[in-house]
């Protein structure tokens, strides 16, 4: 069944088509919600809300963009508004003092790098963090990010570049270790 036919069947109230649409997109929506929320309950809530809204608004979907793009625009809006509303950003504990004691080789440094990186990502401004997670973590293209967030692809690229620069700065003490 192609996308157009699937949408027509969902609009006509076909429950099986609704489930097919859900199955086709739920993984990506849930993954993004989880990556941004860092919390299973919130990720579930955001994913559910995304699909409830999508089914309600499908009648107004004009097919100018791909269904996945339209759905991800709803998802990012739900997640970002939800995070703003509940103000529950999950920050991992980062003991910066430990970093000074880590002078071992690559293997020993890796868990600390990841912990420090997680903290640094959490500390990014919301816009940078969203673009970084979507592009570098979840593999969205700049076109998809631009369509989802309602910004130009150039803005998405610029925000990713600034996000990486901030992360590089935050992880500067790892530079020597990873240079070779």
């Amino acid at each position: 069944m192609d996308e157009r036919e699937l949408i027509a069947r969902v609009r006509a109230g076909d429950g099986a088509a609704e489930r097919t649409l859900y199955d086709a997109h739920v993984d990506r929506v849930y993954r993004l919600a989880y990556r941004l929320a860092g919390d299973d309950d919130l990720a579930r809530e955001f994913t559910q809300d995304t699909f409830v809204r999508a089914f309600e608004r499908l009648a107004s979907f004009r097919g100018e963009a791909k269904l996945s793009t339209w759905l991800h625009a709803i998802a990012t809006s739900v997640v970002l508004n939800g995070l703003r509303k509940v103000k529950r950003f999950h920050r991992r504990e980062a003991d910066l003092d430990d970093a000074a004691g880590v002078a071992a080789g690559r293997r020993a440094a890796e868990p600390d790098l990841k912990r420090r990186l997680a903290q640094a990502i959490d500390d990014l401004p919301h816009g940078y963090r969203t673009v970084f997670v979507m592009h570098d973590v979840e593999g969205y293209t700049h076109e998809e990010i631009g369509a989802s967030l309602g910004v130009e692809t150039g803005t998405s690229k610029a925000q990713l570049s600034r996000a990486r620069a901030r992360l590089r700065e935050a992880l500067a003490d790892f530079a020597g270790e990873w240079a070779s």
């Binding site: 859900y22 739920v26 941004l36 860092g38 299973d40 559910q48 997680a118 990502i121």
Partner: peptide, 27 residues
């Protein structure tokens, strides 16, 4: 740096398996 960053970032808020059925029932 970007390669290292991308590899390390895969562990950032790593999602569990999607709870499809539970979420569908709620929807």
């Amino acid at each position: 740096f970007e390669r290292v960053l991308r590899d390390a970032a895969q562990d950032y808020h790593r999602p569990p398996a999607t709870p499809r059925e539970e979420m569908w029932r709620q929807i």
